[in-house]
Write a protein that binds this DNA or RNA. Structure first.
Lengths: 171, 171
DNA sequence: GCTTGAATTGATATATTATAACATTCTAGA
DNA sequence: TCTAGAATGTTATAATATATCAATTCAAGC
């Protein structure tokens, strides 16, 4: 069994998730400092909730967890915070899931392409030039100029393929 | 100015839309006959409403038009009918728009890739093997097995690019 | 420290999209 | 004609998202 490559976009079921979270916060803090943004308690909490797993989470689930954490909150609270985090590329919205996922490279402006495991729910983000090129060139044959490609792919992740889609929970 | 190629997936702003509608119905009738499905008044009406333009239409807008047409209807009526039409590939759902669009090749089981013009709202459907291949192969590098790729691309269509995004209404 | 304006958050209401559950009607075939 | 299954009607509600205005907090300059 080969280990997970360094640059593998898809989190292994047995990876060190605490490290993911720590790195996500480090990146966020750096980004906020650089851009003069405020990393408020609310934003920090929402980001933390989103990074509790590699599964997309819905706005109302985020809301519930905020309340569990003792914070007064309404839907607007969550949506506003999500909008802010998305503007700064710390979070992406998966339109096919009505749910939100953390992004591990907020520095670069991008939309990303997402692999969503049907069984375990884990999401991996790609940034593949070949996919984008194929879309742009195909679109161009009909004169269409691409601005915002949405690519969200459901299927089975490496680990769930091995389990033949039996599935099991994990971070 | 070159004319629109025969197989162009993107409808020209000045195309003969009556012909689109007629052909859509011909295809639907053929499909229903072949598969022993019932092309009821309701299904026919919904299909007709959807084909009134090449722009995606929301379920509640369909509902309104059904009512305008003198039909009693509730949201369920529309959603059930949409589900049926989607099962039979006569209609696709655009997840990024929460809206529905007619499909001109229901014979083949497929998901399609969509070009959505930000300005005029018109949608063109692609079936490009290269895009799918790029997605599958990239996914495979991380062991991910693709089942249902969602590709929805917003941008500017040929006509709106020429107008520099000024836009104007049409079928 | 104080003031002030902008950013952030709170709070209330409502819009939009979609599904659940059960009743009734229609239709094709025995 | 009868009947079973398909289709539609009906009512209620869930799930997702936005609009609006008020209150609070924060950072910068005085």
């Amino acid at each position: 069994m080969p280990g997970k490559p360094i640059q593998d976009p898809f989190p292994d079921h047995a990876h060190d998730h605490d490290r993911c979270v720590k790195e996500a916060f480090d990146r966020a803090e750096k980004l906020f400092k650089q851009n003069g943004l405020r990393l408020t308690d609310l934003r920090r909490s929402v980001l933390e909730i989103i990074w509790q797993s590699h599964r997309p989470i819905g706005a109302y689930d985020i809301l519930d967890r905020l309340k569990d954490g003792g914070r007064r909150a309404a839907p607007m609270t969550v949506y506003r915070t999500l909008d802010f985090l998305m503007e700064n590329q710390l979070v992406h919205r998966l339109t096919s899931q009505n749910a939100y996922i953390g992004c591990d490279h907020p520095e670069e402006s991008h939309r990303g392409q997402f692999l969503i495991c049907r069984t375990c729910g884990v999401v991996g983000e790609l940034s593949d030039a070949r996919i984008i090129t194929a879309i742009k060139e195909t679109a161009a044959t009909t004169g269409f100029s691409v601005e915002a490609p949405v690519v969200e792919v459901t299927g089975l992740c490496r680990d769930c393929v091995e389990l033949d889609g039996a599935g099991r929970g994990h971070a």
